[in-house]
Design a protein around this nucleic acid. Structure first.
Length: 205
DNA sequence: AGAGCGATTGCCT
DNA sequence: GGCAATCGCTCTG
């Protein structure tokens, strides 16, 4: 897709009602939306191209065994961030879904880098190509400087970390691929991963 | 109190 | 394609 045509003056932040739905519905709806970090250091933006849904009834989900100190924000109100630390070195970013008290979220697995690419490169030393900048959950967290301390629990409708819509670019339903999730060992049969067909910024085909 | 593990990544063969 | 890195959280004793 041609990213240079994006007009950031037309962006509007997704309302909380967008997230107050089952994660399996929010996950494909998020494809094509823009993840934006806008703080004192400048603006970073990327188009969401790959997501995964997680739910309380799902053995692969962090919320499966009920709320803990680690997963508290996943049970919080919709439209907030759930950021977790994994493998001793990586952060992953989720958006919380459904009503407060229900452990439901969508993992953002990949975005197409659009704005602040040079800034992202300074944090992603291992990335040799633009497609390696944000094609994985921990990679995009590093590129957008998303950490648990800084961002866990943040309200995505009213903070420096936002998800916006760009109305002119609705994703056609036949461009969305549904597949099994990546990296999990339980409930591997569930097809709760969604990505844009043929998109080079997806973590894995 | 301590062992084991994980919604990953990058380097090596 | 295989595997080490690295540590907070969870579970067990």
């Amino acid at each position: 897709m041609d990213s240079s045509q994006t007009s950031f003056e037309q962006l509007s932040i997704l309302p909380r009602s967008f997230y107050e739905a089952p994660a399996v519905e929010v996950a494909p709806s998020l494809l094509g939306m823009l993840l934006v970090r806008a703080d004192g250091d400048g603006v970073l933006a990327g188009r969401i191209v790959e997501t995964e849904a997680y739910h309380q009834s799902d053995p692969a989900s962090h919320s499966y065994t009920g709320p803990t100190a680690r997963t508290e924000s996943m049970f919080g109100p919709a439209g907030h961030a759930y950021v977790y630390f994994i493998y001793g070195m990586h952060y992953c970013f989720n958006v919380v879904c459904e009503a407060e008290g229900i452990g439901s979220a969508v993992l953002i697995r990949a975005v197409e880098p659009l704005v602040g690419v040079e800034s992202m490169k300074t944090r992603r030393a291992a990335a040799r190509k633009r497609t390696d900048l944000t094609n994985g959950p921990a990679k995009l967290a590093q590129a957008f400087e998303i950490t648990r301390n800084k961002d866990n629990g943040k309200d995505l409708t009213s903070s420096d970390l936002r998800i916006c819509t760009d109305d002119s670019r609705r994703i056609e339903a036949d461009r969305i691929v549904r597949a099994t999730r990546v990296g999990i060992t339980k409930a591997t049969d569930k097809e709760w991963r969604y990505y844009l067909r043929g998109c080079p910024f997806v973590s894995r085909l």
